[in-house]
Amino acid sequence: MIDILLYAFIAGLLLVIPAGPLGSIILWQRMAYYGDTLAHSALLGVALGLLLDTHVELTVLGVCVLLALLLGPLHRISGNSLDSLLGIAAHTSLALGLVAVSMQSGAVDLNAYLFGDILAVQRSDLILLTGISVLCCGLMLWRWNALVAIATHRDLAQVEGLPVARLEILQMVLMALLVAVGMKIVGVLLISALLIIPAATAGRLSRTPEQVALGAIGCGCIAVVGGLFSAWQLDTPAGPSIVVFAAALFFLLLPFGKRTKT
């Protein structure tokens, strides 16, 4: 039991550490829905992975990156507004994924993909998770200033000579990476909650962008501890419990936000 909890705890931390800064950037760019769409499309990746009998993480990553890269051109060509396009992409890929998974021979535990199964995390999963976590954090540290500059004013950043288009692709790939590994932990339906809620909580209490990122990591860690404790003591589902704790923390700290919306 202690083994399972320890692995789950480490897996949770390895997920919320890169999710803190990445979620902050996504929130600043008002791209919360973008993360949701990528996460929903992950189920299509799961189906593809089962079909090809290969690592599910790889196909999820592939589908997410492909969708992220296709959305831009699709937006330009179709002339639809981005949010309607995101809505279409999110639910089409989710539905397609559900249909494709149902056609697999043999029983597939859909719940594990939809809501995650953090208590089933293995030692091999932890190695992959550590790699992805370190890679994401490293990439964000390397380009942090530029990513904040783009979130502040995209055109200004571009005139000042930042490779905005390439950095936006980097951001998409980071998001796809986190979805691919986070799916196992909190599931495709809740992974974007772990990006958004801790960052939103920290954003109200911070004075610098770095404080938001670190604060989001802190809030994420508290949510993981709380969620796992509740799963252990009250036998609640671990993934959703983590999200519930993150949300509870947000509401609990709501009165303490100094700044009003300007």
């Binding site: 929130l27 904040v148 979130a151 502040t152 000042e160 004075r207 610098t208 404080q211 938001v212 700044r259």
Partner: peptide, 26 residues
């Protein structure tokens, strides 16, 4: 080129001091 855009719509969740805003240029 020095560019001064028409407006700046900062996200409320992105706290920035004036000095940090200028430091974004490096």
């Amino acid at each position: 080129i020095g560019y001064m855009p028409q407006k700046l719509t900062l996200n409320a969740g992105l706290p920035l001091s004036v000095d940090r805003f200028l430091a974004l240029t490096g």
